[in-house]
Amino acid sequence: MSRDHIRELVVLSGKGGTGKTSLTASFALLASKAVLADCDVDAADLHLLLTPMVEQRHAFMSGHEAVIRQQDCTGCGICLDSCRFDAIRKEGAACRIDPVACEGCGVCHRLCPAKAIDFPERVCGEWMVSGTRCGPMVHAQLGVAAENSGKLVTTVREQAWAVAVDKRIPLIISDGPPGIGCPVIASLSGVSLAVVITEPTVSGLHDLQRLLALARHFSVPTAVCVNKWDINPQQTERIEAAAHAAGAAILGRIRYDRSVTQAQLQQKAVVELDAAAGNDIRVIWKQVTELL
């Protein structure tokens, strides 16, 4: 399939915990056929709802880390004095690097007079291609203390595109990263539509406006829905008015409904249960398909 026939939808939220993954999983179920991309690598939870069977695993490398070859270290301490990150300790006759504290700057590697410090690429996690009940899925898992980055998001999206082309699936749905930083930009650029899900809270409006401004810069059409709208109807109206003013389509509202938690517990998408919130999402999905 030509890349021109493939549409990509990304679901974003600004702050975490606003129902982004639940909405993405529901979209995945409602779309008859889609490739799923989990770009929310900090809290990669989509797999908990879609229970993927992993078919391929690949190491994900990013940046470098310094490693001292103990047998070659003379214990001179030059590295220790030059490290600004407090990552090097003297242990007995040799120095050792704390991998969690190492910033990967390479200064010690450069300065070591005994050339005893290696500077290999750092393994930060892995990315996987899996099968789920709603179609193929590309996702990733980071190691402890590793961070999501534009590079990892770009990797996940590219693999999702490759799968879509290969299996002739015309739609990609990605669960976007939280925040508004580099990973979000990497998830947003060039997509057909960004759906922003937000809650009617004090911080929700602020985050939403920053996201919409970001999308506008990348000429990505946006659409907004408010989750748990009925916990604060006034704030919901303020958010919708701000979204409208920023040129976003208003998709609808999702009510506060405990079934959302129930669905998670049963490892299902909300729309797989007979739930009021699920009906709200069906209405929203219909709007999304028209915008796509």
Partner: peptide, 17 residues
Amino acid sequence: TDPTPFGLHDLKLAVAL
């Protein structure tokens, strides 16, 4: 944490840390 699979999954990561 919350008692959802998301919460439990992320709790496990935090406990590992």
